[in-house]
Design a protein around this nucleic acid. Structure first.
Lengths: 286, 286
DNA sequence: AAAAGCGATAGATTCTGCTCATGTCAACCA
DNA sequence: TGGTTGACATGAGCAGAATCTATCGCTTTT
């Protein structure tokens, strides 16, 4: 049973004669006749009564059964083509792995723009703390560092700054050695934080870490409360604040590199491609 | 877009490689490769990522869209074939035009048997008083007389009998002339009743019709009540009754002929065909 | 570096599906 | 009543599609 045969069945049922259906479909009467014959062979019985003479054909009861189902099939086929077109235009779902800084600074603009372009887009964000991410199950993953076995683009360099209460240090750079023995608030030692602490160690600087939390806002709050200093990526410092100051470190730490990654050699959906584009644009403006 | 291509897509997605899908479908790997290529051309994009080497292929996002819709289509196609099979086995709907005697005497047995054979059969009865029936809209029509422009079979001859209160006439035949001047209850003069009354007139018999009703049971009730005599087809006298007696008339009226008709040159559904068969069998037992 | 697994491709062949021309049948008309 | 008309069926021929066989090229694994 072939969709084309069902379309022909439908046309003949609507037009009443093979010839008119042929005109509508751009075939000859002979072709329609043969298609109907093929369909009848497939279903094992006549779908039209042919009265003979100049009378139109009429559906048999079997023909009505086949036509009813056939219309359903044709509608589904049309819906399929439609869905493909919409997919190519950017509809669909995209699952994105992210983390705090990106969620707060980069993604809002990207999501807003995507939803403006494609109101039917289905964006899902997953913010899971992982040390070594893989893009399994996700379409796109933000990560602060390279991702193994994945295609990726570097979104931006996010420099580390020292955060302190305003007035604690004069404006301008602060030597890294100033951290030696200082009370500090920090992230748990995963992801890029581990690298940062290795830099301290290599420089012979041993800060006194008095509190760790994965919540950047929590880190900032504790700095503001006077619990200690913090070294954090500038993006994590997403709120301007009168009572805090940010300082470059000397020597500067290598910046945190933020990558957007996806599974290698996989075709991306147009929606995901657009997300990458917009992410690059957004990051370039920072 | 072809159903066969979608079936191939499904098989490849399930098996992971073109070759295994080919085995399952009875094709060669080459054929599957070409079918997938054709499908990809139809939807305008790749549906599989081919990693190369001994790795299995993977659906692209587009492929997932197409496959989701494709499975739906394939399921509908299977459902269609199933519906055709069930139709050929006797499921479906049949609309039957009937009238009182047939409804009460013949159809119960037929309906019971059909519903035993095909619990999903959808039998609809239409009891409309018409003088000249046509089978438009109906699959089968019972009628007491020939139906013009229709195929038909005679179901049975239904002899007319005189119905009287028991004891009013001695057992056995009653001369037609006994009706002259007699009070009678009768059907409205349509259908076969008109023919009956012409027979009276031709025989010079002029009964006094005191009540007409289309309801056979009403006729009988009024006879029982002593309102008069009645001449009615034996089938219409479907209740045995101690206080009534039935008599042949002399000369006998030509019996009412009951036909089962359907539109000429139309293919009947297996269900309708079965109804015709069962009707003949049932009538033969009367 | 060789072997194995897998998809793509070229060429040959078979099938399918279409068109054109013609046949056949029933209703209509003169 | 016999020709005409309108409609479907059928046969021949051809073009294109689908399939198979064989082979190529790529990637991973050994």
């Amino acid at each position: 049973m072939d969709l084309r045969h069902l379309a022909t069945l439908d046309a003949v049922a609507a037009e009443g004669t093979f010839g008119k259906a042929a005109d509508r479909l751009g075939y000859t009467q002979s072709a329609v006749s043969q298609q109907v014959a093929a369909l009848e062979k497939a279903v094992g019985g006549a779908v039209f009564d042919r009265p003979g003479g100049p009378k139109p054909v009429r559906l048999t009861p079997l023909g009505e059964v086949v036509l009813a189902h056939g219309r359903e099939l044709l509608a589904r086929a049309a819906a399929t083509e439609d869905a493909v077109e919409r997919f190519k235009a950017g509809e669909g779902r995209v699952d994105i792995g992210t983390f705090q800084s990106v969620t707060n600074v980069i993604l809002p603009a990207v999501v807003r723009q995507i939803l403006t372009e494609h109101p039917a887009a289905d964006i899902r964000l997953f913010e899971e703390e992982t040390d070594e991410p893989s893009a399994d199950g996700l379409d796109l993953v933000f990560f602060d560092g390279r991702v193994k076995d994945a295609e990726q683009v570097k979104i931006l360099d996010d420099p580390y700054v020292l955060v302190a209460r305003r007035g604690q240090f004069p404006e301008g750079p602060v030597p890294l050695t100033a951290l030696h023995g200082a009370a500090m608030v920090a992230q748990p030692p995963i992801c890029d934080q581990a690298r940062v602490e290795r830099v301290y160690a290599d420089a012979g600087v041993a800060p006194l870490i008095v509190f760790r939390t994965a919540d950047n806002r929590g880190v900032i709050s504790m700095v503001r409360a006077g619990m200690g200093l913090a070294v954090m990526p500038r993006l994590a410092l997403d709120v301007a604040s009168d009572d805090l100051s940010a300082h470059e470190l000397q020597p500067a730490l290598a910046p945190r590199e933020i990558y957007l990654a996806w599974q290698a050699n996989r075709t991306l959906s147009p929606l995901a491609t657009r997300v990458i584009e917009l992410t690059k644009q957004t990051a370039a403006q920072l």
